[in-house]
Design a protein around this nucleic acid. Structure first.
Lengths: 124, 124
DNA sequence: TTTTTAAATGCATCTAAGTCGCATTTAAGA
DNA sequence: TCTTAAATGCGACTTAGATGCATTTAAAAA
């Protein structure tokens, strides 16, 4: 099965905590923080953080900090930028590829912050 | 004097804490977090946070959260993007203007994250 | 299948940036 | 100089995430 293969291909032990986490992230269309999923998982938060961190080391998951002092995680797929609303903190994936180079730097992430459509239309 | 004028033009009381804060930020070439300046100021951290927050309301200062769960502040001047190193957390101002529009969104900030020149050359 | 053991887990505790309530102090207008 | 709303300092609080340690478990060896 897909999830089990991902874990074992990286030489990680196949535990139920890891399967639970991957299941959720593989089925999500947007980055999620611990708080977003804590009610859907049965493991302790320390276990979540240790595992998601290991997934990141193994390049299964990619993460970034948002506006709300929380770290958001998503399955590492095609690189894309994120839009973060400074008003409601919603995160959108921007699928149009932005090519951006800086000499002697490696660009890993592009975060655009501002006011999202919902808040914009409410004129906040 | 410059600093006093900035404060009074926004109808803020001219206090020594406010002068201290502005003095530091006007002389800095890059965004600073509380931790970066705490040894240079004499006020309590609550006072710092309350004032910087007021400066932000009054559009004297602009801020964003970085990688390290800290909020960075800078004097609001020409809009520019920032490069944040995922390895050493250093922040650079990118002066080349990046024009970026998203329909029905307001873009307020552009953060590029990755590996900075120093870390890149060290091959971290 | 059973044994072995390094890795994973749960629990409790800790850390650190930032916030808040409240008593005291101060800027600035009357 | 007096008055008062706003600003300050202090201590306590909040919250995402990290850590130490005893217990459990996956998976390789016997």
């Amino acid at each position: 099965m897909e999830i089990e293969k991902i874990i074992q291909d990286k030489n990680l032990k196949l535990t139920s905590a890891r399967k639970e986490i991957l299941e959720i992230f593989l089925n999500s269309q947007k980055p999620l923080a611990y708080e977003d999923i804590k009610d859907k998982i049965t493991m302790d938060k320390a276990t979540f953080y240790r595992n998601i961190s290991k997934f990141e080391d193994k390049a299964i998951v990619h993460s970034f900090e948002s506006n709300d002092k929380k770290r958001y995680y998503e399955i590492q797929s095609t690189p894309h930028a994120h839009f973060i609303c400074n008003n409601c903190n919603t995160i959108e994936c921007l699928q149009d590829v932005i090519n951006f180079e800086i000499k002697n730097h490696i660009v890993q992430d592009i975060l655009i912050k501002g006011i999202c459509e919902v808040c914009f239309l409410k004129r906040v």
